[in-house]
Amino acid sequence: MPDKPKVAFYWCASCGGCEESVVDLAESILDVVAAVDIVMWPVAMDFKKKDVEAMADGSILVSLVNGAVRTSEQEEMAKLMRKKSKLIIAYGSCAHTGGIPGLANQFGREELLRYIYEESPSTVNPQKTRPELKVIANGSTVTLPNFFNIVRALDQVIDVDYYLPGCPPTPKLLKQALEVLLSGKLPEKGAVLAPDIALCDECPKKDTKPSDLKFTEFKRPHWMQIDPKVCLLAQGILCMGPATRGGCEGVCISGNMPCTGCFGPPSRIKDQGAKILSALASQVEAKDEKGIDETLATIPDPVGTFYRYGLPVSLLRRKNFNSTG
């Protein structure tokens, strides 16, 4: 069936959850398979890099690439997929904004390798052996890809046409996106294929959010019995919803867990963490410096809280971006 549009899936630094989300299409996946010709999908099908290399440039209609870019191999594959595809979709938080792997940007490569191979409590490595890019053993050469100094979102490596946000994206958004792409009515380049309004808009607990939250401390969800009917922020639980793009239909919130920000910010916002901080900080009850410090000290991991999925695209630690090698 040569006329079916070609679709590819690829993964970079990711956990595999995005792959799961494709399977989560359930029976709809059959419609997808019927409508397209999948030419690359490492998790499910046995295509090789050379198969893709053999294809004509631009012959794949759309490649959905998930995961952040941490290694030279991922960079190489991302560039290959770009070359062979008409459209690239950054699929999921890691490709979109760097995701959980992006939190490693708090540290440099040397710091990370030293910890993993020498200092971590579970490591026994008296020779301080580190992985080498090239090892010759028994006459054969083994190579490993380069481990970059930083983690990058996909569009910091290749040109990206669209983004499907989420950790992982919901099947509903994936289905909508595929339908739109196959219909040929393409959205504006660079679009994030989800509503451009914050999650509060569709939050089931929206009506119970007070206008002044008057934070005295930030509570962690496991400390307490959460009232399922009331806005989590009103209960003192840090919810990223006000600064996070909607479209997930509040799946976490319906499960009584706060939004952690995986859809990234709405398009207007440059830095999701800074934005939620300025919103929450203006609603801290204490007005004196000591009281404010005490309230903010109840957030145990500020970077992991406010930049959980977006450190590589945030304004923080941009200086590291000077060297990707």
Binding site: I197, A198, C200, S211, G241
Partner: peptide, 21 residues
């Protein structure tokens, strides 16, 4: 209007009480 999620963050912080919902 189409970008406002109605989260109410702005309501109480306005020093001139210019914002309503």
């Amino acid at each position: 209007q189409e970008e406002c999620s109605g989260c109410r963050t702005c309501l109480t912080i306005c020093p001139f009480t210019a914002i309503s919902r």
